[in-house]
Design a protein around this nucleic acid. Sequence first.
DNA 1: CGTAAGGTTGATCAACGTCAAGCGCCGTGG
DNA 2: CCACGGCGCTTGACGTTGATCAACCTTACG
Lengths: 263, 263
Amino acid sequence: MRSDGRLTQIKDVVLRWSYPQAMSSDHNPGLSTTSEQFDRFASAILPCGISDRAFARFRSLARFDGAATGKAPLAKTGEDQIVFVASGATKLVAHATHGREQIVAFHFAGDLVSVPARAAHAYTLVALQPCALVTFPAAAFMLAARAEAGLLNEVLQRALRALDRSREKSIILGRKSAQERVASFLTIMAERIGAPQDGGCVLDLPMSRRDIADSLGLTIETVSRQFGELRDLGLLDTSGRSIVKLHDLAGLDARAGHLPVAA
Amino acid sequence: MRSDGRLTQIKDVVLRWSYPQAMSSDHNPGLSTTSEQFDRFASAILPCGISDRAFARFRSLARFDGAATGKAPLAKTGEDQIVFVASGATKLVAHATHGREQIVAFHFAGDLVSVPARAAHAYTLVALQPCALVTFPAAAFMLAARAEAGLLNEVLQRALRALDRSREKSIILGRKSAQERVASFLTIMAERIGAPQDGGCVLDLPMSRRDIADSLGLTIETVSRQFGELRDLGLLDTSGRSIVKLHDLAGLDARAGHLPVAA
DNA sequence: CGTAAGGTTGATCAACGTCAAGCGCCGTGG
DNA sequence: CCACGGCGCTTGACGTTGATCAACCTTACG
C-alpha cells in the first residue's frame, strides 16, 4: 500500500471531490479523497517495483468518478476505457434492439473492467451502489503499461479471468434451464461476495431482480419463481429484497448443471 | 517473418512430424514442418525485436500437434494451455450435464486460444478441419513472456478481443430470437472468413449445423428452419452443406438485432 | 404512516425443443 | 462413370418451457 502519497498530496487540493451521495452508504463507504481512490488502484494493480515516473504517469491519466445507484458513471469519450472499481459495485450493460438489455458482467470493489466504446452493440457501465471509480483511456493506459511487464502481466491475468467468467456465462445462457441459471448465479455470487455462516452462506445482493434477470437472459417473473422453487426445496431463504441465505451450497451446485472437469 | 530459422533447422531433424491426414486437405493445406508452424506463430505473435534467448525459450516450450477433423488435439496435461492455430479451424467446447454442449468460440488460422484446465465446466478444443497447432503450457508461457513487454501487450490485446467476442456471444445467447442468432452468426462469420463476391459475400463454413446450433444455444432443427426463412427472405442461398452465399449483408445485419453504438 | 417502486403470484400464449419421417449430398465401391 | 449407402440436413406435427399480461402484495423510504 503506497499510502505515503508521493505526489498525491499535491493533487488532492485540486482534485478533492465529494460524491453526490456515495459517502453515506454504510455498506460500501465511499473513499473521501482521490488519493485514497488512486492508492487503492495502485496497491491492487500496479506492481510494487514500479518507477516513480510510471506511477506519476498513471496518476495523471486517471479520472475520478463517483456515481449514485443507477447512474452511468462514465463520460462517453468515444474511446475504449479501463475502469478500476475502487468501491461499490457496477454492471456492464449491453443494449440490443427494442430496449432489450443484457448484463454482460457484474463488478465489485477491486475489479478492473474493460469498457469497449465501439462494438456490434453499445455498452454502458452502471452503478449498482454508490461507487468510486478510477477511469483511464485504454489506449494511453496500454501505452504507459508497455514499459512495465509486471503491470501488463497483472492486467493480462485479470483479462483472462474475465474471459473465463464470460465463457461460463455463455454456457449458462446457451444451455441451461431457468432453475440451473438461477442456481449458477447464486453459487457464483456466493464465491464472489458471500459471507460464510454456519455451514451455509449469506448474500447481500446489490442488484435487483431485474438485474439478475437481465444477466441470466430471463424475465423478472421467472427469476422470482425460481427463487420460490429453490426456497421450497429448502436450499435457501430470502429476507427483504436483497438478503439471500444459502443453506446448502453443494445442493445448489448440483442444481446448477455443472459438469466438473473431465468429460 | 523470421523464416531464416535460427535454431529451427537444428530441431527439425528431431521434431519433424507428419500429420495423420492433415496434409492432403486442399482447403487448408497443413504445414509440413514444425519450423514452418513455429515460424508462423513467431511472425504472428512474437515481437520483431525479441531476443534470441527468449525466441529459443518459446521454441523449447512449444509442443506441435496436428489433428484430423473431429479429434481433440490437446493432451490433457492438467494445466492451462495457450494454443496457436497455425492452420485449420477449431472449436472450444464446454460440457454441461446430460451431454449438453456449448461451443464457446471458433478459431481460425492465426488465432491464439486460452484453454483453461479447471473451471466450473470442462473444456475441450476440437478440430473442425485438419489442423496444425502450437501448444504452450500457460504458466511457463506467461513466465517467459514477462521479460518481453511487446509480447505481453500482443497477448493482452488478443485476450481483450476474445473477451469482446465472448461478451457479444452473451448478448446473442441471452437476449436474441432464433432468427437474430443465426443472422448474427452469419454476419460474424462473414467478417471473419467471408470472401466478398459481387456485392455480397460467400462463406465456406467449416462447422456443421450441429456446431452452429451448439454455438448459438439452439437445436439443429431450429438452425435449419432459420436458414430456410432467411433464404425465403432472399437474404442468402445455400449450396451443399457448407457453402452459404450472403446477398445482403446490411439486410442480414438489420435482422441480427444489433443496436449500433449509443443508447 | 403513506406512497411508489420493486417483487410475487396466477393465467394464458408463443417460441423453440422434441420426436419422427424423408430427402439429398457426398464418399465409396463396383 | 454410375450405383449404392450412410450421414447430415430438412421438413412436419406436437409438447414444454419460459415470456407475456395482469393483479396483488411487500419493502423501503420520505
